[in-house]
Structures are given as C-alpha cells and as structure tokens.
C-alpha cells in the first residue's frame, strides 16, 4: 500500500513529465510551421521568377528542352574570356526600325539576361552580317568582329528554321542594333549549334536587306510581338471577337412565362404566341361548365374545400372558398 509521500512524488513526477512532453510538441509544431513557411516562400519566389505571358504547354516544354541545351553551349562560348568584352549583361539595345519585345525565357538555369548598349559610332568599324542563334534568355550580343567569330552562327537553312534572329550591323548608320532574342514561343527544336562563321558584306550591299536572311527571322521575331501589345492586336479594322450570339433564344416557342427583366422593346417573335395564348377565349379543361357544376353541387354558388387531403404536406388544414362567378 502506498504512503502519502509516494503518492505525492508520483503525482509531481507525472505532472513534470507531461509538461516536458507538451513543450516538445509545441517546439515540433513551431519548427514544422517554420519549415512549411519556408517551403511556401521558396515556391512563391520561384513562381514570381517565371514570365507573365506564357506559350502553350507543349511549346513551353519544347522551348525549355532546347533552351537548356542552348544555354549550356552558349554559356561556354559567350562567357569565355575572349568574348567578355562584348558581353555586357546590363546594357540594352534598341533595334533599328523594329522593336523587339524581349522577354526572359522560362526556366533558364542561371543564364543571365544579357543586354548591351552599343556606342555604335565608336565601335563599328566593319560591315559584317552576322546571324546569331537565339537562346532562351533574352540575350543581346554585340556584333563585333571578334565576338561574332565565336558567337555568330552561319545563316544556313537549318539555322533559319530554328529560333534565330539575325542581326546586321551597319557602318554608315549611327545607330546599330544587334539583337538576338529568344522566341519563347518557338516550337521548333534545336539540337546543335554549329560553329560560328561570319560573312563580310560590303557596305553598298547593306542598304537592301537580302530577303533570304531577313524574311524568316523577322517572322520569327514578330511572333513574340503577337503576345504583347502591338498594333496588330489593336487594329480597329479587325472585328472583335463576338462573345454573345447574335440570336438569343430565351424562351421556348410556346412558353407563357414572363421574362425576369422586362425588355424595353419586346421582340414580337418571342411574345407573339404567348400573347395569343392569353387572349384566347377558350376555357381550360379544368374548369367546370355551369351545367357540370349544377350536376355536382346543386344550386349553391360556393363550396368549401379542405386542402389537407389535397396537399398532405400542410401541417394544418386549410380551407379555401371558391366563388363561382355569375
């Protein structure tokens, strides 16, 4: 049999053990809440890093696959020490006579957004046509001779079909833009990037852009514009998309229901037949003729009906009085 002291000691020990257990649980709950918060925060951060406008899912996955491969190859070629002079990641370029909507590509692995402002009057000394293969990130390569040897891509047919925007540098013009953008909406895949080759074109020939080089890439470049706010979308000549049908059928033909919102001008085709039905002089079959009434109820002109049998759901008997009009 236990003594008072034994009981007291047991009770105190049990109470302290319970207190320690609750503390452990509270700490575990707070740690798990912190971990959940961190995971959520990282997830939100990654979500925000993605671009706003996206291609379709298949296009995005194809672009992602190609982008990752291109990223690796270009990263080694572009960011090698020889091309470090041209690669100025923080500058921006505006293309002559054409604005290219550049967007960061989705899911690029640490590929920096790569722009360069060219002080073109100073830097341009030669005339060269360079076709530079696009990369997923919006990168802009400055087309100098030294750089183009490593980064420019020959304008072969195979390359034209890929996500490439060709850029031409001019000597005479003051502003020169060399832009290479990655069309995020490209669906075509690129397997390899051939070695860079440059073509020197005389300045006289540069006045007219060869159609072979610029037609397809311009088409390719214009595709991102379609996703942005460009003139094509805002063209007033285009008919807007009709969201509502031209003919709205609200009621069936023989419906007698009144519309919820009374129209200002009721179309006749909807309300002609119901209007005709209300004006009908024919009595419904449910009503009794005076002769039938007299046969059933006699000379009385009013009857009392208990509705409890007719409507069993009613909690109490209700009586209705029916008066026969003369």
């Amino acid at each position: 049999m236990k003594t008072y002291d034994e009981v007291y000691q047991n009770v105190i020990q049990a109470a302290n053990a319970h207190k320690r257990k609750m503390k452990k649980i509270q700490n575990a709950v707070s740690v798990s809440a912190l971990c959940a918060g961190c995971v959520l925060g990282v997830g939100m951060f990654l979500k925000l890093e993605r671009p706003m406008s996206r291609p379709s899912q298949t296009e995005a996955t194809a672009a992602t696959v190609t982008a990752s491969k291109m990223t690796e190859m270009l990263h080694t070629s572009v960011f090698s020490p020889a091309s470090s002079d041209a690669a100025e990641p923080t500058a921006t370029i505006s293309r002559q006579n054409e604005e290219i909507h550049t967007e960061p590509a989705p899911e690029t692995e640490n590929f920096p957004e790569f722009t360069s402002t060219a002080n073109h009057d100073e830097k341009i000394s030669t005339t060269s046509v360079t076709t530079i293969k696009a990369v997923p990130a919006a990168e802009i390569l400055h087309s100098e001779t030294g750089m183009t040897e490593e980064t420019a891509v020959p304008a072969t047919e195979q390359e034209k079909s890929t996500s490439v925007s060709t850029v031409r540098t001019t000597v005479k013009e003051t502003s020169v833009t060399t832009v290479v953008t990655a069309a995020a909406t490209e669906t075509q895949t690129i397997t390899e990037i051939p070695p860079v080759q440059t073509e020197t074109v005389p300045a006289e020939e540069l006045t007219e852009a060869p159609p072979e080089i610029f037609t397809e890439p311009t088409e390719q470049i214009s595709e991102p514009e379609e996703s942005g706010t460009t003139e094509e979308i805002l063209d007033p000549t285009e008919e807007p998309i009709q969201t509502e049908p031209t003919e709205i059928e609200i009621f069936p033909e023989n419906s007698t229901e009144a519309p919820t919102e009374a129209p200002t001008e009721a179309p006749t085709e909807y309300f002609s037949e119901p209007a005709s039905s209300t004006e009908s002089t024919e009595e419904p079959d449910d009503f009794l003729t005076p002769e039938e009434w007299k046969a059933l109820f006699g000379e009385t002109d009013r009857i009392t009906i208990s509705t409890d049998k007719i409507i069993p759901e009613l909690s109490q008997t209700t009586y209705t009085t029916v008066i026969i009009p003369d």
Binding site: K2, V7, N10, V11, A14, A15
Partner: peptide
C-alpha cells in the same frame, strides 16, 4: 481491488495537477 484503486486514485490526482 486495492492496487487498482490506488492506481486510479493516483491517476485522478495526476489529472488534477495537469
């Protein structure tokens, strides 16, 4: 059963203290 009664009474006091 006294031993069970002791355990039960002790448990009651533990619950009071918690």
């Amino acid at each position: 059963n006294l031993s069970d009664a002791e355990d039960i009474a002790q448990e009651a006091l533990i619950r009071l203290s918690i």
